[in-house]
């Protein structure tokens, strides 16, 4: 499960969903794997305004990943500065910046393969196996 997914996940228990402490879910005993994927600059740019940046930073910290910039990148940060300023016109082939590469690596290539996701509100643990998180609840929590 890619880390980007955590940006759209909370606890499946109804009473938790409206509690701020249920977001983001906290990875525990996580085994990470890098699954390489093609960097898609427009996709990254479009997803940028949807990111809960502070929460992503805190998840990355909990997983012991290299620190992310404290302030959320803006679209311009994703483009590498052109080597030759005269090539900026046209702009057909825009190169991703290091920021874009780092973001791609963290959000789309870093995957939780095994472990748990824990709700900060009720403490319920959701298992992640073979890269798939399971949110089915036991009967008494439905």
């Amino acid at each position: 499960m890619k880390l980007l997914t955590l940006n759209f996940l909370t606890c499946a228990v109804k009473t938790c969903k409206t509690q701020p402490s249920s977001f983001p879910l906290h990875p525990r005993d996580a085994e990470l794997e890098i699954i390489e994927a093609e960097l898609n600059l427009p996709f990254l740019r479009n997803i940028l305004p949807r990111l809960m940046w502070e929460d992503i930073c805190s998840v990355a910290r909990e997983l012991g990943l290299p620190a992310l910039p404290a302030i959320a990148p803006i679209p311009a940060d994703l483009l590498a500065a052109p080597l030759d300023p005269s090539t900026t016109t046209g702009g057909a082939e825009q190169e991703p910046s290091q920021t874009a590469r780092d973001l791609h690596r963290v959000l789309l290539e870093t995957c939780i393969q095994e472990g748990k996701l824990v709700c900060g509100c009720c403490g319920h643990e959701y298992a992640v196996k073979e890269g798939v998180a399971n949110f089915l609840l036991p009967g008494h929590l439905v």
Binding site: L9, T10, V13, K14, Y126, V132, N134, F135, L136, V142
Partner: peptide
């Protein structure tokens, strides 16, 4: 992910 449609894990 695996989830029940009556208990979806999304904000």
């Amino acid at each position: 992910l695996v989830a029940d449609n009556l208990s979806l894990p999304h904000p």
